[in-house]
Each structure stands twice: as structure tokens, then as C-alpha cells.
């Protein structure tokens, strides 16, 4: 019971963090058909900017400045770089952002070094939210989840309740039509790209103070985020929310479970045989928790190739 509650809490907060990053990716893809490979780099950049700013002006300034910086960079990428390769097709757009991801990662290494930097949450947030089963549950985890929830509520209200939001949604469905109706669609695209990048940057600024901040964090999270969008169905916000939570929960439960194929086969009396084979058979779930998302993705591909919420092509 203790394990289940703690794991569920951890899973949901991690899932919400994943959604903070995958939401922007999904929004941009749904609208412009561009898969932004550099999206998770904005997450990393957000953490580093927040680290650099907070070391002088304090944590909260860092958390505010980081999304602004990443958002502006995102807008610049959309405005000045993507149009140049647009005519060569989506594959070239993907490749361009892939190159940008590489450059961002290397620049971060250049200025901050290859090793993790010491980006910490402020002492004012370092306390336990509650005491459960003889252990303290850190408030900051809830804070990460809370930031995510507040952000989505704001985003959702923006998309459904404001004029801009209606134009954005129109542009997502039928960009040419929306433009013909007199809306400045290039502006909307830039705005959406910037917002997506800012969301990722904010996620990095908040999460970087809890998880390690290092040059690999972009790639590590990026790969999981890509799994999220494949599992959820590219372009579907609901799908990516569902997949984020699913993967968050799977990962956090897997860390604490010592299940293995040998144990499973032991239930039908083949335990000894499986143990004698070793290798994959005796691997415990906890030691392969990093593999779980990828395995989950392959299963989803088999059962629902379009993703959980995706439309068929």
C-alpha cells in the first residue's frame, strides 16, 4: 500500500512533467506538421538559463526568465530558420531541428561543462509536504505537478475562451482557410512555436532544480517525450496527456518491483529452467525501468498503430 501510493504520486508528477514538454511538441506538430527535434533542448536550455540567472538574481527570477528566453529562441527559429527549408519538405525541417538540438547541447557543454551543474531549489521550497508511512514526501514534487496543472489550465482557457485561441485552433485544422479569412497565420505559427518552446523552458527551469541538470537531460527526456507522442498519437493533446501519465506511472512503479520473467514462469513451474537460462529471463523489472517506455511503445504500435488517441493517418 505504501509503495503503491508513493509510486502513484511520483508517477503522476513525472507524467505531468512529461506532458509539460510533450504538450508543446504536440501543439506544434498538430498545427505546422513540424516535428521539432530540438524541443527537448529547450527543456535543457530552460534549466541552464534558470540556473545561470538564479545564481545571481534568485530562484524565482530564474523560473520567470527561462521560459521567456527559450520562447524567444523558439520564435526566432520558427521565423528565420524553418522557412528556409520548408520547401524541401517536413523531413528537412526535422533534420534542421535535429542539427539545432545538437548545437544547443554542444553550446551548453561549451559554457557549462560536461558535468551536472549545482542547480538547487530554494530553501523556502525544501520541506516535506506530508509525512506518510514513516517517510517525508518532498513538497517540491507536488510543486512540479502543480506548476504543470496551473499551466495547462491557463493554456486550455487560452485556447477555448479567447479570440486568439479560436484562431489558433482554426489554424490547426485548416491553416489556408484561416488565412483566407484574414488572420495572420504566420504570426500565429510563430506564437505557437514560441509558446511551445516557453513551456518546455519552464518545465526545465522547474524540474532542473529537482532532477540533475546536465547536458544529457535534453536527450534523455526528449527520447521519452518522443515515445509519449508516438504512444498518444502525434498531434493529439489528449493522447499525449494520457500517454504522459501512463509512462510516468509505469516508470515509477517499475523502479520498485523485482518482477522478472523467471518469476513469472515460476508461477507455472518453469522458474528453474528460466533461471538456468539467465540473461533476459532473470532481469528484474526495477533494473530495466528505463526500457519500459520503449517496450510499451512497441506494444502500442502492434495494437494501435495510430497511437492511443491518434487518427488513422
Amino acid at each position: 500500500m505504501e509503495f503503491a501510493i508513493i509510486s502513484a504520486l511520483n508517477g503522476v508528477t513525472y507524467g505531468l512533467l512529461l506532458f509539460m514538454v510533450s504538450a508543446g511538441l504536440t501543439l506544434i506538430f498538430g498545427m505546422m506538421g513540424v516535428l521539432n527535434f530540438a524541443h527537448a533542448s529547450f527543456y535543457m536550455l530552460g534549466a541552464y538559463v534558470a540556473y545561470a540567472v538564479s545564481s545571481i538574481f534568485g530562484f524565482w527570477t530564474g523560473v520567470i526568465v527561462a521560459p521567456i528566453v527559450t520562447g524567444l529562441i523558439g520564435m526566432a527559429v520558427e521565423r528565420f530558420l524553418l522557412p528556409k527549408v520548408h520547401k524541401h519538405g517536413h523531413a528537412h525541417e526535422l533534420l534542421l531541428t535535429f542539427g539545432l538540438a545538437l548545437i544547443i547541447e554542444e553550446l551548453v557543454k561549451l559554457f557549462f561543462g560536461d558535468f551536472p551543474v549545482n542547480y538547487q531549489m530554494p530553501a523556502s521550497l525544501r520541506f516535506s509536504a506530508f509525512h506518510i508511512f514513516g517517510a517525508d514526501y518532498p513538497f517540491y514534487r507536488l510543486f512540479i505537478g502543480g506548476v504543470a496543472v496551473v499551466m495547462f489550465t491557463a493554456l486550455w482557457l487560452l485556447l477555448t475562451r479567447t479570440r486568439t485561441g479560436i484562431v489558433v485552433r482554426a489554424a490547426e485544422r485548416l491553416p489556408a482557410m484561416a488565412e483566407a479569412l484574414g488572420h495572420n497565420i504566420p504570426m500565429v505559427f510563430m506564437f505557437v512555436f514560441g509558446t511551445g518552446a516557453a513551456l518546455a523552458g519552464l518545465a526545465g527551469a522547474v524540474a532542473g532544480a529537482f532532477y540533475p541538470t546536465n547536458p544529457n537531460m535534453g536527450l534523455e527526456l526528449g527520447v521519452i517525450v518522443f515515445v509519449v507522442v508516438v504512444v498518444g498519437g502525434l498531434g493529439s493533446l489528449k493522447g499525449s496527456l494520457l500517454a504522459s501519465l501512463l509512462i510516468g506511472l509505469f516508470s515509477s512503479f517499475a523502479v520498485g518491483l523485482d518482477w522478472s520473467l523467471a518469476k513469472l514462469l515460476g508461477l507455472v513451474g518453469l522458474g528453474e529452467w528460466a533461471r538456468s537460462i539467465g540473461g533476459l529471463m532473470t532481469l528484474e523489472l526495477s533494473s530495466v525501468s528505463a526500457t519500459i517506455p520503449f517496450a510499451l511503445m512497441l506494444i502500442v504500435l502492434l495494437v494501435r498503430p495510430a497511437g492511443l488517441m491518434g487518427e488513422r493517418n
Binding site: L94, L283, S287
Partner: peptide
């Protein structure tokens, strides 16, 4: 099973599967 960017993402994930699993398989 999927084409376009899906294909790119799935290949990436399959490689990561090996990368995460390999160090555990003595």
C-alpha cells in the same frame, strides 16, 4: 508500420531500447 516522422521516432526509440537494455545483459 508508420511512415514519416513516426518512422524516425520509432527507430530512435528502438535504438534507445538497446542502449538501455545492453548494460543490464551481462
Amino acid at each position: 508500420m508508420r511512415s514519416g516522422v513516426y518512422f524516425a521516432l520509432v527507430t530512435l526509440a528502438i535504438a534507445e531500447l538497446f542502449h538501455s537494455l545492453a548494460p543490464r545483459l551481462e
